[in-house]
Amino acid sequence: MARAILFLATLVLASSAHADGGRYEVLGDEIPKPLTDQPGDPARGRAIVVDRRKGLCLLCHSGPFPEERFQGDLAPSLEGAGDRNTPGALRLRLVDSRRVNTDTIMPPYFETTGLHRVAPEFRDKTILNAQEIEDVIAFLATLKTTGGSR
């Protein structure tokens, strides 16, 4: 019984995060605190990044993904993203890139405010949920050109 309640509580938390986003604190150009208690999983993050329907990253970016034939050229390569950005800076970038660059074309992955004419099936939903954001950050952090792991 106790287990069932715990399970339900997690479910509600996870879905509400996906439903409204926006629960984070920005300090300077970072969101220092992770959005979830569970650490991000780099393998799951990589899968999200290359997924054209979920992460959509390769619509615009390229990166060290030799198996992906079609990569975009509208944004800098993700190669070395973990060198250039702290995890907190990556988090702000992903959550809402408009806070870094008001004219950005990078979609806000964890924010639903300030959007117009959103299709009904996506209204008030964030592109990624909190855990997926953390997974992507964990993966990006491994993208180091300076002898880091990949």
């Binding site: 979609p107 959007l115 004419r117 592109i127």
Partner: peptide, 9 residues
């Protein structure tokens, strides 16, 4: 010229 949609483009 106005960004639209969940992807805000």
């Amino acid at each position: 010229e106005r960004p639209i949609g969940q992807l805000n483009l």
